[in-house]
Amino acid sequence: MPFVLALALLADSPAATPAPPPRVERCGYRIVQSFPHDPSSFTQGLFWHDGHLYEATGQYGQSRVARLDLKTGKALVETPLPSDQFGEGITRWGDQIIGVTWKNGIGHRWRIRDLKPLGTFRYAGEGWGVTMVGKDLVLSDGTPQLRFLDPATMVERRRVTVRFAGRPVAMINELETIDGRIWANVWMTDFIVQIDPATGDVAAIIDLSGLHADAGARGTDGVLNGIAWDANAKRLFVTGKYWPKLYEIALANCR
Rank of each mutant, 00 (worst) to 15 (best):
W187M: 14
W187D: 13
M188H: 14
M188E: 13
T189S: 15
T189R: 13
D190Y: 05
D190H: 08
D190R: 00
D190C: 09
F191T: 14
V193A: 12
Q194G: 15
I195V: 15
I195K: 01
I195G: 02
D196Q: 01
D196T: 08
P197H: 13
P197G: 07
P197V: 10
P197E: 12
A198I: 00
A198K: 11
T199Y: 12
T199I: 11
T199K: 03
G200I: 04
D201W: 14
D201R: 07
D201I: 00
D201H: 14
D201Q: 15
D201A: 15
D201S: 13
A203H: 03
A203L: 08
A204S: 11
I205F: 06
I205L: 15
I205K: 10
I205S: 01
I206N: 01
I206D: 07
I206Q: 01
I206F: 02
D207W: 08
D207L: 10
L208T: 08
L208Y: 07
S209V: 09
G210N: 10
G210F: 06
G210Y: 09
G210A: 08
L211P: 07
L211C: 06
H212W: 12
A213I: 05
A213N: 03
A213R: 15
A213Q: 15
A213S: 13
D214L: 14
D214F: 02
D214T: 03
D214N: 03
A215T: 11
A215R: 05
G216V: 10
G216N: 09
A217E: 01
R218V: 14
R218I: 12
R218T: 15
G219Q: 09
T220F: 12
D221G: 06
D221L: 14
D221I: 03
G222V: 02
G222E: 00
V223H: 03
V223Q: 14
L224A: 00
L224H: 05
N225L: 07
N225G: 11
N225Q: 06
G226Y: 03
G226V: 02
G226P: 00
I227Q: 04
I227H: 08
I227M: 05
I227S: 01
A228Q: 04
A228G: 00
W229H: 08
W229Q: 04
W229M: 06
W229C: 00
D230I: 08
D230H: 09
D230N: 07
A231W: 06
N232S: 14
N232R: 09
N232T: 12
A233V: 04
K234S: 12
K234V: 06
R235M: 06
R235H: 14
R235F: 11
L236Q: 04
V238G: 10
V238Y: 01
T239Q: 03
T239A: 01
T239D: 03
T239R: 02
K241H: 02
K241P: 05
K241M: 12
K241C: 07
K241S: 11
K241T: 04
Y242D: 11
Y242W: 13
W243R: 10
P244V: 13
P244N: 13
P244E: 13
K245C: 11
K245Q: 15
L246D: 09
L246G: 06
L246T: 13
Y247M: 03
Y247V: 10
E248G: 05
E248R: 13
E248I: 11
I249F: 07
I249N: 02
I249G: 03
I249A: 07
I249S: 03
